[in-house]
Amino acid sequence: MTLWLTMVAIGIATFAIRFSFIYLFGRFEIPDPLRMALRFVPPAVLSAIVFPELLMPGGDFDFSLGNGRLLAGVLAAMVAWRTKNVVLTILVGMAVLYILQALG
């Protein structure tokens, strides 16, 4: 139940964001500081999720070669940097993780 309520609330808020300036056109402009801040939302939020996923698998800090997710994630990031290809990044990351799991 909470799941559905949360989902509907996110849906309504998302629509409101998308509708906002289409509706308000001519009545209101985005202030410049806010416009600048919005640019940093994706990198900040995404890496705030990714860093713990890589550095704290299972909830404990693990900065070592034994941490397969960290190694796989770093290699995947290099692939993403070079190719900008989402599918290839995922495939390489998963392949590295599987290989390390098979070796370990």
């Binding site: 796989a72 993403a80 900008k84």
Partner: peptide, 19 residues
């Protein structure tokens, strides 16, 4: 199959080229 890890990888794929 550790498929949950594809989520982190997806975010990496979106994040890195945006830097």
């Amino acid at each position: 199959w550790s498929l949950d890890f594809t989520l982190a990888l997806t975010f990496i794929a979106i994040l890195v080229p945006a830097l």
